[in-house]
């Protein structure tokens, strides 16, 4: 017998039954194919404005900085100011995704924009977040042809562009969107990252320090362009 068979047999023995039968399997499959949320906290729920406000509040509480913008054209200027304020180099590594490529970078010639995945020498990374979750101020990033995962982790400074309309109230809403956007049986991308603040540790004498392996700072460009 393989270990697989032995383990399954031992589990069933402990459960005092053989393999599950048709009805039981149907019940479980129903649960797996139509996942229903358990309790969802009230925090984070509300209209788009409230969700954006909760998101900003929660993200700030876990040491992110949030810049509220009204138009794409504001991004280069805002980013330049942020990098200056934090003494960061003006070279940014940008995910090769259309909405970031469409930003009028020329308006800030000081910014050096390179598209592609993060390299060891990159100090600043910019992604376009797939979404956000209001209840905990969490950024959601999905891996894909235009979305390298390493960009979320290697640079010292992690900047995420987030459209406020992409902020879900809670994780369950975000999962529903992942499922419906893919519309396939196997809908998960290779990596789903939830990012809630900059990298941190308290492993040395329980002292909280930021930036142990991942980014030392997380900056969110929250774009409310419902008007435009």
């Amino acid at each position: 017998m393989s270990s697989r068979e032995i383990m399954l047999a031992k589990i069933r023995n402990s459960l005092g039954r053989g393999p599950l039968g048709g009805d039981a399997i149907q019940a479980i499959e129903k649960r797996l194919k139509n996942p229903t949320p358990n309790t969802i906290p009230a925090r984070g729920q509300g209209g788009a404005k409230e969700r954006a406000a909760t998101f900003s509040k929660m993200a700030s509480q876990c040491d992110c900085t949030v810049d509220l913008l009204n138009d794409v054209s504001e991004i280069p200027g805002a980013l330049k100011t942020y990098l200056e304020t934090n003494n960061q180099p003006m070279a940014i590594r940008v995910a090769p995704v259309a909405d970031l490529q469409d930003i009028p970078w020329d308006e800030e010639p000081a910014l050096v924009v390179n598209y592609g995945n993060a390299e060891e020498t990159d100090h600043v990374g910019l992604i376009s977040a797939w979404g956000g979750v209001a209840e905990s101020g969490t950024i959601v990033a999905l891996s894909g042809p235009q979305n390298p995962t390493a960009l979320n982790f290697l640079p010292d400074t992690f900047v995420a562009l987030l459209y406020s309309k992409k902020i879900a109230s809670n994780y369950e809403e975000a999962w529903s969107r992942v499922r419906s956007e893919s519309n396939q049986d196997n809908f998960m991308p290779r990596t789903v990252n939830w990012i809630t603040g900059p990298s941190r540790t308290a492993d040395i004498e329980q002292t909280l320090l930021l930036g142990v392996h991942g980014p030392r700072r997380v900056h969110i460009l929250l774009l409310d362009n419902e008007k435009s």
């Binding site: 929660m58 969490t138 042809p145 995962t149 789903v192 990252n193």
Partner: peptide
């Protein structure tokens, strides 16, 4: 509320992943 990084990994990289 959450640890800083929560990561769901599904299979190896896809053909067109970076």
């Amino acid at each position: 509320d959450l640890s800083v990084y929560t990561t769901f990994s599904t299979g190896p990289r896809r053909d067109d992943d970076i």
